[in-house]
């Protein structure tokens, strides 16, 4: 499941490398300026990134897959959906780990509704990445966006639950 991740990383590097080489060939000065801008933008957000990374480490140590499957594995109904959304909101798991994990949870007895809620809030809600989001968008927008995305996860859960039972 990690190979998919690696292919994406490699693709990202190849595309970036090609564009960078083309830019350098076209105009050295401009390329230098672009790299300087890239570094400045990175430097500005670095403290927030570090906080996020530490938070992720802390949370993932507590909320490991076994723990998650214990919580939403066998529960069903709306309470399970709510729990699944909450877990999805506070954890940050790359999709390439999350999807196979969700498949395992399904085999372990979780319903499609809960999995739909979990996947949806996992991807759209980011409680731990809020420091980064706030730095760019301010508190108000960040909170509104995350709350709306959280509520939307329940809609996704409901529709997925309905469609999958057809």
């Amino acid at each position: 499941m990690e190979s998919g991740d690696k292919i994406l990383d490699i693709a990202l590097y190849v595309v970036t490398g090609l564009l960078l080489a083309f830019s350098f060939y076209k105009d050295k000065q401009k390329t230098k300026k672009a790299l300087k801008k890239a570094w400045k933008a990175f430097e500005n957000i670095l403290p927030e990134f570090l906080v996020v990374i530490l938070l992720v480490g802390l949370l993932l140590a507590i909320m490991n897959p076994e723990m998650i499957s214990k919580i939403i594995g066998e529960k069903s109904g709306w309470f399970g959906v709510l729990l699944a959304s909450v877990i999805g909101a506070i954890t940050l798991i790359p999709g390439f780990v999350a999807f196979p994990m969700a498949a395992l949870l399904l085999q372990g007895g979780a319903g499609y509704m809960q999995i739909g809620a979990f996947i949806s809030s996992l991807m759209m809600v980011g409680v731990v990445t809020m420091p980064v989001e706030i730095k760019y968008f301010g508190k108000k927008l960040t909170i509104y966006r995350n709350v709306l995305a959280f509520l939307f996860s329940s809609v996704v859960a409901f529709v997925i639950g309905m469609v999958m039972s057809l």
């Binding site: 401009k30 300026k33 801008k37 890239a38 933008a41």
Partner: peptide
């Protein structure tokens, strides 16, 4: 970040 630098320029 390199991509956003290039995009910007």
């Amino acid at each position: 970040f390199v991509l956003l630098g290039l995009l910007d320029i």
